[in-house]
Write a protein that binds this DNA or RNA. Structure first.
Length: 389
DNA sequence: GACCATGATTAAGT
DNA sequence: ACTTAATCATGGTC
C-alpha cells in the first residue's frame, strides 16, 4: 500500500483522493475515448488506475475485457514507461534477489534417512538391500528373514509406493502452479514491468513453499518407517531362545573352558557356525558371533553369581567333555605313558580376578553334586583311576 | 498371571 | 574393543 501511494505520487499531479473518492463512477469506454483537455487526461489516468486497483474485484470476463481495454489504451505505453522508471528508482526489481537458500539440514537428514531405509533412491533391489543392512546394523539376526521379514519388506514397499506417488503428485502440482504463475506474470509483464529476475524469484518462492510441503511428506514417511522398524526389526522385542543343540554346544565350550571362558574371535565364529548348523529343526535361526558373545557374557556373569545353581549343569558338561578327553587320554596312554589329562577345571577366572570355587558353600555343592549327581562322573573317575592317573 | 529363564541392551570400567 | 554388572523385555512353565 505504501508502494502504491508512492507510485501515485510519482505519477505526478494525480491526487490520490481525487480518484479514489469517485468510487462508483462510470468507467470510460476503452475505445474511442478522446480526452483532449488536461483535466480530462488527469481524469483519464485516475480512471485507469482505479481500474487497475479494482481489477481483482471483478468477474473474469469483466476483468478480461478491461484488461484488453487497458492493453489497447493509448496511454498504456506512457504508463508503462513511467512504471518502469519508478521501479528502477525504487529498486524493486533487485530487492531480495540476493537471498540464496542454504540447504536445510533437517531436510537433508530426512533425505538421508529415507535413502538409508531404501524408501527413496534406487528401485527395489537396492531398497531391500539397504533394509537388510539396516536390520543387520540394528543387531537383529539378519538371517531371520522368515515371515516377519518379508512382511516388513512388503510394508516398506507399500510406504515407498505411497511416498513416491505423493511426491510425484506434489511435483506435478508444483510444476503446474509454477507454469501458471509464470504465464500470469508474463501476461502481466505487458501491462507492468516485470523483469525475468523477478519471475525467477517468484518461481523459487513457489518451489520453496512446495518443498516445505514435501518435507512434511518426508517427515511422516520417516515416522512410518520408524514405527514399522520398531515393530518388525527390533530384535530385542522378539527374543527367541536358542535351540537345545545350540545351547548344548555353547555350554560344552563354556564348561570345558571354565578356567578361562573367553572364546577368541575365531572360537566364537566357529561356535556360531556350529550352533547355526545344528539348528536344523523348525525355524531357521542362525546364531551370530555377537550372539555368541552375548551368550558368554550372560553365562559368565550368571554362573559367577550363583555357582551352586549351575553346579549340576557344570558336572554334566564336565563329565561329557571329560569322557571324550578320557578317551583321548586312554588312546594316548596306550601309545606312551603320558600324564595330566584334561580334567574339568572347577576354578573360574573372571577377567582381572580369580574366582575360585573355594568358598565353603560352593565347595560343598561341588562335592555333593559330584557324588550324588551324575553317575557318569563316577564312572569317569573310575576310568581315570583304572588308567592309573 | 506369577515366576523364573534367557537373550539383548546399556553404562561404566579397563 | 571387550568385559562386567545391571537391567529390560520376552519366552516358557506351572
Amino acid at each position: 500500500m505504501d508502494e502504491q501511494a508512492r507510485i501515485m505520487q510519482a505519477l505526478g499531479g494525480v491526487s490520490l483522493a481525487g480518484h479514489s473518492v469517485q468510487g462508483g463512477m462510470a468507467l470510460p469506454p476503452p475505445h474511442g475515448h478522446d480526452g483532449t483537455d488536461g483535466d480530462g487526461r488527469k481524469q483519464d489516468i485516475g480512471d485507469i488506475l482505479h481500474q487497475i486497483m479494482t481489477i481483482t474485484d471483478q468477474s473474469l470476463d469483466e476483468a478480461q475485457a478491461k484488461k484488453h481495454g487497458l492493453n489497447c489504451h493509448r496511454m498504456k505505453p506512457a504508463l508503462f514507461s513511467v512504471l518502469c522508471e519508478i521501479k528502477e528508482k525504487t529498486g524493486l526489481s533487485i530487492r531480495g534477489a540476493q537471498e540464496e537458500d542454504p540447504p536445510d539440514p533437517q531436510l537433508m537428514r530426512l533425505d538421508n534417512m529415507l535413502l538409508a531405509e531404501g524408501v527413496s533412491g534406487p528401485e527395489k533391489g537396492g531398497g531391500s538391500a539397504a533394509a537388510a543392512a539396516a536390520a543387520a546394523a540394528a543387531g537383529g539376526s539378519p538371517a531371520d528373514n522368515s515371515i516377519e521379514h518379508s512382511d516388513y519388506r512388503a510394508k516398506l514397499s507399500q510406504i515407498r509406493q505411497i511416498y513416491h506417488t505423493e511426491l510425484e503428485k506434489y511435483e506435478q502440482a508444483c510444476n503446474e502452479f509454477t507454469t501458471h504463475v509464470m504465464n500470469l506474470l508474463r501476461e502481466q509483464s505487458r501491462t507492468r514491468p516485470i523483469s525475468p529476475k523477478e519471475i525467477e524469484r517468484m518461481v523459487s518462492i513457489i518451489h520453496r513453499k512446495f518443498s516445505s510441503i514435501q518435507m512434511q511428506l518426508k517427515q511422516s514417511t520417516c515416522e512410518a518407517v520408524m514405527i514399522l522398524r520398531s515393530r518388525f526389526l527390533d530384535a530385542r522385542r522378539k527374543r527367541r531362545n536358542f535351540s537345545k543343540q545350540a545351547t548344548e554346544i555353547l555350554n560344552e565350550y563354556f564348561y570345558s573352558h571354565l578356567s578361562n571362558p573367553y572364546p577368541s574371535e575365531e572360537a566364537k565364529e566357529e561356535l556360531a557356525k556350529k550352533c547355526s548348523i545344528t539348528v536344523s529343526q523348525g525355524v531357521g535361526t542362525t546364531i551370530t558371533v555377537a550372539q555368541v558373545s552375548n551368550w558368554f557374557g550372560n553365562k559368565r556373569i550368571r554362573y559367577k553369581k550363583n555357582i551352586g545353581k549351575f553346579q549340576e549343569e557344570a558336572n554334566l558338561y564336565a563329565a561329557k567333555t571329560a569322557v571324550t578327553a578320557a578317551h583321548a587320554v586312554a588312546a594316548a596312554v596306550q601309545n606312551s605313558q603320558t600324564n595330566s589329562p584334561t580334567t574339568p577345571n572347577s576354578g573360574f577366572q573372571m577377567k582381572d580376578e580369580e574366582f575360585q570355587l573355594d568358598s565353603a558353600e560352593n565347595k560343598n555343592t561341588l562335592l555333593t553334586n559330584m557324588f550324588t549327581g551324575t553317575g557318569l562322573f563316577h564312572k569317569l573317575l573310575i576310568v581315570l583311576l583304572v588308567i592309573g592317573i
